[in-house]
């Protein structure tokens, strides 16, 4: 799940997501779902080098990748368009079921 700075343009956003997708495919993974939550209000001001951010763009990518994929995502820490990113493992896989949490997958990059 990716939380980006609010003013990031759609092209830059797509560029970032495409780079993650390329990484997934390089590791023989599958990108199963992508979802945008739009602009969300944050619980507190996240301080980055260029100021405090009280809003953010939330995106979710669901993918199936080998377990070592987490380490390869660490390059996202250096990404200045991102506020936060998070990897959540989905162990109880319910394929094809549209649930409230609405996303299935082995590993979900957020």
């Amino acid at each position: 799940m990716l939380l980006l700075k609010p003013h990031v343009k759609k092209e830059a956003l797509m560029d970032l997501v495409a780079r993650v997708g390329k990484h997934v495919y390089r590791r023989n993974g599958v990108l199963t779902d992508m979802k945008s939550f739009g602009t969300v209000q944050l619980g507190y001001g996240i301080k980055k080098l260029d100021g405090r951010y009280y809003q953010g763009q939330l995106m979710q990518m669901t993918m199936m990748t080998p377990p070592s994929f987490n380490n390869e995502l660490h390059y996202l820490n250096r990404e200045d368009r991102l506020l936060r990113w998070l990897l959540v493992k989905h162990r109880d896989i319910k394929y094809g079921l549209e649930f409230l949490s609405e996303d299935d997958g082995k590993v979900k990059s957020r």
Binding site: Q41, G43, R84
Partner: peptide, 21 residues
Amino acid sequence: AFGLMPFTTMGTKQFIFGKTM
């Protein structure tokens, strides 16, 4: 930790979903 909810709102306004802090 992800920034979606506040750690504390003591001394500030209450956190309400959908409202900026």
